[in-house]
Amino acid sequence: MLLIDCPHCGPRAEIEFRCGGEAHIARPVAPEGTTDAEWRDYLYLRRSPKGLHFERWNHIHGCQRWFNLARDTVSDEILAIYPMGSPPPDLGRA
């Protein structure tokens, strides 16, 4: 069970959180102008990398705030935690 350092509450057990899937999937600003393929990509297509993954987490049983988190999916090491709206940090790895 991961130990996640909520930016607002400090380190808490994973059961207090909910993972919201891959981060940096922006809802298109003008959905009506998107093609079916673009809309499909936004709705359904997600990466499932072995290694570095940027994902959204919500401290649902705590402050209820969303934040982004960079995790190595092999070691489960949490490499960075950063606010919603910020670009993914450069962690010097692919």
Binding site: R18, G20, R27, N58, I60, R65, W66, M84, G85
Partner: peptide, 13 residues
């Protein structure tokens, strides 16, 4: 509630 919070915090801050 969680879904609406998600939208407010992440899509429409």
């Amino acid at each position: 509630l969680a879904w609406l919070e998600d939208l407010l915090q992440t899509e429409w801050p």
